[in-house]
């Protein structure tokens, strides 16, 4: 149950994290800047590639930049709010997860707020800047539908990324050593979505469209925003997939929370 009292607790916890980050101002600033630089490297690769070719998988530079920006903003929102669940493995190993469980608050909520990291918004700035520049540069006729689709893409994308994050972090309930498998799906997933999925081979495209729904984060809704050919012509999928991201996001949440709950019920502490 989410009531006013719970929200107040979350706000206090996040506030405490933010204050502790600000406590070491120079160190925080340094990390924010270096986070910007390091996440900007992915975009540098795209920019360098486009100095050698005019189109990648049929997409212009500005279009790939839009895809990158929208996915990047969505990812950084998910990373800031839910990325803390990555620490589940560490907490289980140290035995401190038990402490989380005895508190009268959702375990997931505690993990997310305890590791809430404001410095992660470095990526938000960087991807946001790319997104704004791309929105100006893409050659489309802006309609109300297209304009509205941009925030919808980002919101649904953030939820899908978040769901994948929770689902993969829950692997730690079964094994604490394979934490990095999750990284392949979260960070790897973000990396994948930066490019039009037409460049991938058929099996990978199918995986992204139907199993890990990464194609709904960026590619499908972007087809609509950018006014590109409907997916029916390439994938045999109905045009409605361009507008399905919110529905897919809701479904992804349901699956992720089911996995999380099964894992949580299975958890037996370390015994140490």
């Amino acid at each position: 149950m989410v009531d006013v009292g719970t929200i107040a607790v979350y706000r206090r916890l996040i506030g405490a994290r933010v204050r502790s980050d600000f406590g070491f101002r120079a160190s925080f600033a340094f990390r924010l800047v270096s986070a910007c630089v390091i996440t900007g490297l992915d975009f540098a690769v795209i920019a360098v590639v486009f100095t050698k070719i005019g189109r990648l998988g049929g997409w212009r530079f500005s279009e790939v930049a839009y895809l990158y920006g929208a996915c990047g903003v969505a990812f950084s929102v998910a990373e800031t709010w839910i990325g803390g669940v990555d620490y589940l493995a560490v907490r289980i190993k140290q035995g401190t997860f038990d402490r989380v469980l005895v508190r009268p608050m959702s375990a997931l909520g505690q993990l997310a707020t305890e590791e809430f990291a404001l410095r992660r918004i470095g990526k938000l700035f960087q991807a946001g800047a790319v997104l704004v520049a791309a929105l100006v540069a893409i050659p489309v006729q802006w309609t109300t539908g297209r304009i509205l689709m941009v925030p919808v893409t980002i919101a649904a994308g953030a939820v899908i990324y978040g769901a994948v994050w929770v689902a993969t972090a829950a692997i730690s309930f079964w094994t604490v050593d394979a934490n990095e498998l999750g990284n392949a799906l979260t960070y790897g997933g973000n990396y994948l979505t930066q490019y039009p999925i037409t460049i991938y081979s058929a099996w990978l495209r199918r995986l992204l469209a139907f199993v890990v729904p990464m194609a709904f984060v960026g590619y499908f809704p972007s087809l609509y925003v950018l006014g590109r050919t409907a997916p029916s012509e390439r994938f045999g999928l109905p045009s409605v997939v361009m507008f399905s991201s919110p529905v897919v996001a809701a479904a992804a949440c349901a699956v992720a929370s089911a996995i999380w709950r099964v894992g949580l019920r299975r958890y037996r502490s370390t015994g140490s």
């Binding site: 070491f24 160190s27 340094f30 990390r31 800047v33 270096s34 630089v37 390091i38």
Partner: peptide, 8 residues
């Protein structure tokens, strides 16, 4: 805090 320099 070495994390900033290490990241850079």
């Amino acid at each position: 805090d070495d994390r900033g320099p290490a990241q850079l």
